[in-house]
C-alpha cells in the first residue's frame, strides 16, 4: 500500500524522550482533547499550542522509552501526521502504527533536520527530504503489512473491517498501562 507523501514542519527532540513526558500520569485522567494539551508539558512548555496540523515530530535514539500509554493518539489529536526517529522503542513504535500514525526510523535524521525545517516524508520509501536544499536521507523501510496497517488508519480499522467490532462502532481502546 502506498501512503501519500507528507510535507510539514519538523519539531526536533533529543534522545530517550520518554512516554511520561509526552503523556504524563495526571493527563491519563483527562479526555483525549485535554490530555493532548500536555504533550511535552515539561520539556517544551506551550508546544501543544504551537504545533500545527501536518507537522512531523523528529527525535533521536530510543524514542518513546517507557509505558504503553498511547501517545500516538495525543499526537493525532494535535494533527501531527508522522514520527521520525533515529531509533524507536519497540512498544512505542507498535503503538504508533497501530493508531495509524506512521513511525519511520531514519538514522542521522537529527543531524540533518533542524527545528522548524520544512520536510517531505515518504513513508513507504522511508525517506525524508529537507525542502530548503532537497537533501534527502534514506531510512529503514517498513514491512508491507505494517504499511498496510498504517494505510488503513490503524489496527482497529482493520479489525472493524474483519468484523470484530459491531457495525458502526469506531471506538478505540485508548489507554495503555503504567
Amino acid at each position: 500500500m502506498t501512503i501519500e507523501l507528507l510535507e510539514g514542519s519538523a519539531w526536533v527532540f533529543g534522545d530517550s524522550i520518554d512516554t511520561d513526558n509526552m503523556y504524563p500520569g495526571f493527563a491519563m485522567k483527562l479526555s483525549m482533547e485535554e490530555a493532548a494539551k500536555h504533550v511535552f508539558y515539561d520539556l517544551r512548555p506551550g508546544w501543544s499550542e504551537a504545533v500545527q496540523p501536518g507537522d512531523i515530530v523528529v527525535a533521536g535514539r530510543n524514542f518513546g522509552i517507557g509505558s504503553s500509554r498511547p501517545v500516538a493518539q495525543l499526537f493525532k489529536q494535535l494533527g501531527v501526521v508522522a514520527l521520525v526517529a533515529e531509533e524507536f522503542n519497540s512498544l512505542f513504535f507498535r503503538n504508533s502504527i497501530n493508531f495509524g500514525l506512521p513511525a519511520v526510523t531514519i538514522p542521522g535524521v537529527t543531524a540533518t533536520v533542524g527545528d522548524g525545517d520544512r520536510v517531505r516524508l515518504d513513508v513507504s520509501a522511508a525517506s525524508i527530504e529537507r525542502v530548503a536544499d532537497a537533501q534527502t536521507l534514506e531510512g529503514v523501510k517498513l514491512p508491507d503489512f505494517v504499511l498496510d496497517i498504517v494505510g488503513q488508519g490503524g489496527l482497529m480499522a482493520k479489525l472493524a473491517g474483519d468484523g470484530y467490532l459491531p457495525a458502526g462502532v469506531a471506538g478505540t481502546p485508548s489507554r495503555g498501562g503504567s
Partner: peptide, 22 residues
Amino acid sequence: TDSHTCAAGAYNTAARGLGPVE
C-alpha cells in the same frame, strides 16, 4: 498491554507489553 509484561521473562516465558490496540 502494559510495558512491564516482560516481568514474566523470569519464568522462561516470552513476555512483553504491546499496547492497548495490539
